[in-house]
Nucleic acid binder design. Sequence first.
DNA 1: GACATCTGACAGGGACGTCTGTCAGTTTTG
DNA 2: CAAAACTGACAGACGTCCCTGTCAGATGTC
Lengths: 213, 213
Amino acid sequence: MVQPDQQDQPGRSYGGRSKAERAAERRERLVAATITLLGTLGEARTTMTAVCAEAGLTERYFYESFRGRDEALTAALGAVSTEIADAALAAVRASDGSPQDRVRAALGAVVDVLSTTPAKGRVLTRESSANAALRERRQALVGWFADVVATQSSSLFGDQAWSGARAGHHAMVFVAGYAELVGSWLDGDVALDRDQVVDLGADLLAAVVRRPT
Amino acid sequence: MVQPDQQDQPGRSYGGRSKAERAAERRERLVAATITLLGTLGEARTTMTAVCAEAGLTERYFYESFRGRDEALTAALGAVSTEIADAALAAVRASDGSPQDRVRAALGAVVDVLSTTPAKGRVLTRESSANAALRERRQALVGWFADVVATQSSSLFGDQAWSGARAGHHAMVFVAGYAELVGSWLDGDVALDRDQVVDLGADLLAAVVRRPT
DNA sequence: GACATCTGACAGGGACGTCTGTCAGTTTTG
DNA sequence: CAAAACTGACAGACGTCCCTGTCAGATGTC
C-alpha cells in the first residue's frame, strides 16, 4: 500500500547499467527493429507486437519509450533522416574540391547509406508516407532538407545561386524529386550505377538551384 | 433448385437502365465517394463501410465493382490521374503560343483541377502513397507521367531538349518534386499565388529537361 | 539471506473492419 | 397477376491489433 517516494530516484543499476542507460538501450533496439520491419515488411505489417518481437522485448517496454505505434514509426523515420543528414554534411566538410565535387560528395554519402542499408532506403523513400503520422513528419523533413540544401547551395555556389524563399521552393522540388528517383533506383527500376545516380543528382541540383545565366 | 441458364443474359432493365448501365453508374458513385473520403478523411478512415455510406449504396454493390478496399482506392487514384492528364494534354493542344506558354497552359490546367477540387489534390499529392496498393499504383503513375512530360517536352522544345532514358529520369524528378510542391501549396504552406506556382513549375521544367547550353 | 526491483512470457478484454448471409419490399417481365 | 430479378437494411462471424494486467523467475540492495 505504501508507495515509497521514488519520483526522482535514479533507480538502481541492473546488469551493470543504470536505469536510464537500460531504458535508452531498449529504446534504441526498438527504433532499430522498427526501421528493419518498416523497411522490409512495410508499414502495415510493422505492428507493435512485431516490433517487440524483432527487438526481443515485450510490449511493456514499448510503452516505456513510445506512447503508441505512430511514435515508434516517426522515431524510426527521424533516426534515418538525421543519419543521412549528418552523413551528407560530414561529407561536404571533408571534401575540398570544386562546388560540384562537394555536392557529389554529399549526395554520394546519402546514396551510400541508403543503398548499403536497403531498409533505411525504403523507410526514407517509400514508407515515409505510409501513415498519417509518418506523412506529417515527412512533410516537415522535406521542408527541413530543402532549407539545408538551399543554404548549402548558396554557400557553395555563391553568387550563382539564389537565396530566399524561391530557392527554398526549388530546393523542395529537388529534394522530393530526387528522393523519388533514388527510391526507384533502389528498387532496381532505374538502370544506372551508383556514380550515375550521384552525378544525375548533382547536375539536377545545379540546374534547379542556380540562377539562369 | 433449377438455375436458369443466364450466363450471357444481359439482365433486364430497371429504372429505365440496363444492367450494365446501372452497374457502371454505381461504380462511378463508389469511385467518387472514395475520392471524397480519401481526400478529406484520409486513407485510414476511408473504410469500405464509409465509402458505401457516402455513395448511398450497400456493401453488396461494393463487391460488384471491386474485389476489396484496395481496388477502390487505386481506382480513385487512377480516376484523378487520368483526369488531370487529359486536362493537361487538352490545354497543350488548345494553346498556340510559345513552348513556355504551352507548358504553362498544361501546368495551369493541372493546378486548376487540383485546387478547385481539393479532395482530388489531396488524393494525388498526399494520400497517393498512404497504402501499399496505392504506392504501387503511384509509382507506375509517376513513371507514366514522366514519360508524357519527356515526350511532350521533346516535341515542344525540339533540339533544346533531351530525349531517351536520361530525359525520363529528369522528368521523373520534376514530376515527383512538383507534386510535392503543389501539395504543400494546396495545404497553404507555400506563400505563392496560382500563377506563381504555374510559372515556378514551367521554369523548373525548362531547367530540368533542357540540354545545358 | 530477505526483500524490493526488474524482467520476460503470456492471457484476454475491447475496438474496429472485412466480408457473408438473410429477409422484406420494389420493379420488371411474361 | 404471378414469378423472377433487383434493391436496401442489417445482423453477425471472423480476424487482427492495441493495450492492460498477472505471474514466475532473475538480479539487484541492505
